[in-house]
């Protein structure tokens, strides 16, 4: 079973052409993905996150067995952000939230995130962050939230990318409420993380379709080629996410 824990559904983003939900699901299925978490991309740079949360909701309504959504809000919207989080989870059935601090122009470790994390704890959903990019979302800036809120589940959406993976690894060793997502993560980092943190806190994501339609083959093969047990690979490719999202 392959569950892709990191995909973006959008129509147009800069020079990137997105796709509609039908094409999106077709392409994932043709690459033997059994289900996916969808997130916005356009919504990170536009004021009205409601609009983009509604778009995601329309896609999950169309493919309820296949897709689940992580919504987004702008942390500086204050109480508006909190009420939108409640709407996303309670009315739209979303399973978590995604933040992209550098696109959304806030600092992951900033005070405006505190009520957001508290609300996520109350709603019992995880928060996924783009990480590995200074100066707003280095892995330790995101991990600071995990430190301040041990009850929160914080997903490092790229496990540090190329430059911060050792910080991401350090953070995961230090804070047990951190989940490492293998998505654009170097091979050497995956090996170290599985060995030191254990496969049960590692999950798979492709960032489809941002790194190209074929990014799923590449991301899956990176995990399949790891020198770990098949059980560990299966956990990373799907079972862990299923457990975390209570699917």
């Amino acid at each position: 079973m392959i569950l892709d824990g990191h995909t973006h559904l959008f129509s147009q983003f800069g020079f990137l052409r997105g796709m509609d939900a039908d094409e999106f699901v077709d392409k994932l299925k043709s690459r033997r993905v059994d289900g996916a978490v969808v997130m916005t991309l356009e919504g990170f740079t536009k004021d009205d996150s409601r609009l983009y949360n509604d778009q995601l909701h329309a896609a999950t309504e169309r493919y309820p067995e296949y897709l689940c959504a992580f919504g987004t809000v702008h942390p500086r919207d204050g109480s508006g952000a909190i009420s939108e989080m409640r709407r996303c989870v309670k009315e739209l059935g979303m399973k978590g939230f995604k933040f992209h601090p550098w696109l959304q122009a806030f600092c992951a470790s900033g005070r405006e995130m505190f009520p957001i994390v508290q609300e996520a704890v109350a709603l019992d959903v995880p928060l996924l962050f783009h990480d590995g990019t200074p100066p707003y979302c280095t892995s330790l800036q995101v991990a600071y939230l995990a430190r301040c809120f041990p009850e929160a589940t914080i997903i490092l959406g790229h496990s540090g990318l190329r430059d911060y993976w050792r910080e991401a690894l350090y953070a995961a060793m230090e804070y047990e409420n951190i989940i490492l997502q293998f998505c654009g993560t170097p091979d050497i980092a995956m090996r170290e993380m599985i060995e030191q943190v254990g496969p049960e806190r590692c999950i798979f994501g492709s960032d489809f379709p941002f790194p190209g339609d074929s990014c799923i083959e590449l991301a899956v093969s990176q995990i399949r080629n790891l020198d770990v047990s098949d059980a560990a690979k299966d956990a990373i490719l799907g079972e862990n996410l299923k457990r975390i999202l209570k699917l």
């Binding site: 170097p186 091979d187 050497i188 590449l218 093969s221 080629n225």
Partner: peptide, 15 residues
């Protein structure tokens, strides 16, 4: 390599 790997990087060029 060994940061990335020949496997991963060659697959990219194939794709």
């Amino acid at each position: 390599a060994p940061g990335s790997s020949l496997e991963t990087e060659l697959l990219k060029i194939r794709l």
